[in-house]
């Protein structure tokens, strides 16, 4: 297994990285079936957690994906790394299709594709030492000489700002921010090209958030990593991302380079989201005009013929409810019939 693993990954990264985007997601959908009613007359339906999402990520780039809870941003992340099975659509890593692979076939690709999770308390095995947590991926991919692995783990700990002396300590001895650093070191252990970060700072205290954001940005500079950065906090994403995608009810409604999205948002949902996020400045807060959205995000089991945002949209017309708007445009794409250009 191991010779295959190493040869496949090295050859793909050499041949295809110049012609293909690092990650390409085409029409990705994840639908979860659910049953309602009693055993005998159970009605089956689907929750459309992710519905036809497409995007690309280039080498060394950070794509931020923002949206509110239930918009499908985490499910998108989990579908890319195959923690959930996509219902439809394709995922390409360095030009190779990976979404239909078996776990064994997927293994070599995992060396290039790693993930950091939201909860630093749940994502580290409490019975393993930090050293073992960080060297485990190296063992799996047979990286480095066995004796070198511990040294490499210590180098990584130093890189992410942990004292290498703590190699033999257990996760419970560390604070949330330090644990998130351990998770980052574990992801880096196999020298990936792309790290999917699912809300990596939202469980951390404010003063610790900035430490982890800066660390991720420094690592990107040093190692040329690409990130898919999932978050609900627009200000955090603005700091770290190069491009941003906004999701609503399983669909991407707007994607744009960061500067365009924050200075000139075009989708009414993006505008509302930006205007709702509180600014830590009392003077600015008082002067702001808020776009108030009516109601809450509807249940994703509801099926819309037209735009799923129309019910809450301040500018929707009757026609918006009949036809589904497609995400279109050049660098700044928007899925809205009435978006200002």
């Amino acid at each position: 297994m191991s010779p295959v693993a190493t040869s496949v990954s090295s050859s793909t990264s050499l041949n295809t990285s110049l012609t293909h985007p690092l990650l390409e997601v085409r029409n990705l959908s994840v639908h979860f079936p659910f049953r309602r009613g009693g055993l005998l007359n159970a009605q089956r339906g689907f929750i459309r957690a992710v519905d036809g999402v497409s995007f690309q990520v280039a080498e060394g780039e950070t794509l931020g994906i923002v949206g509110e809870s239930g918009c499908g941003k985490s499910t998108t992340a989990r579908a890319i790394v195959k923690l959930v099975r996509p219902t439809a659509g394709e995922v390409y890593l360095q030009g190779e299709r990976i979404d239909h692979l078996s776990d064994l076939e997927m293994l070599p690709h995992r060396q290039n594709l790693q993930m950091i999770f939201q909860d630093p308390f749940a994502s580290l095995n409490p019975r393993m030492t930090i050293g073992n947590i960080i060297t485990e991926p190296m063992n799996i991919f047979k990286l480095y000489e066995r004796t070198q692995r511990k040294l490499e783990a210590m180098r990584l700990m130093d890189l992410v700002g942990l004292n290498p002396r703590f190699l033999n300590r257990y996760p419970h001895e560390f604070s949330g921010g330090q644990r998130q650093r351990i998770g980052i070191a574990r992801a880096l252990a196999v020298q990936p090209r792309l790290i999917i970060c699912d809300e990596p700072v939202s469980a951390l205290d404010v003063s610790i958030q900035a430490q982890v954001i800066n660390l991720l940005m420094e690592l990107q500079e040093k190692l040329g990593l690409a990130y898919v950065f999932i978050a609900h906090d627009l200000a955090v994403v603005r700091h770290i991302a190069h491009r941003v995608g906004v999701m609503y009810l399983g669909r991407l409604v707007e994607t744009a380079p960061k500067s365009a999205l924050y200075t000139n948002p075009r989708h009414p949902y993006t505008k509302a989201l930006l205007s709702a996020a509180p600014i830590p400045d009392p003077v600015a807060e008082r002067e702001r005009q808020r776009i108030e959205l009516q109601g809450e995000v509807p249940s994703p089991e509801k099926i819309y013929a037209g735009c799923s945002f129309a019910d809450r949209c301040p500018i929707a017309e009757a026609s918006c409810r009949e036809t589904l708007p497609v995400l279109q445009g050049g660098a700044h794409k928007v899925a809205c019939f009435k978006a200002d250009s």
């Binding site: 003063s207 954001i213 200000a235 955090v236 700091h239």
Partner: peptide, 12 residues
């Protein structure tokens, strides 16, 4: 605390 909060109107 004030300086470490990412603001969406901050200098990037």
């Amino acid at each position: 605390l004030l300086e470490s909060v990412p603001r969406w109107d901050a200098d990037l």
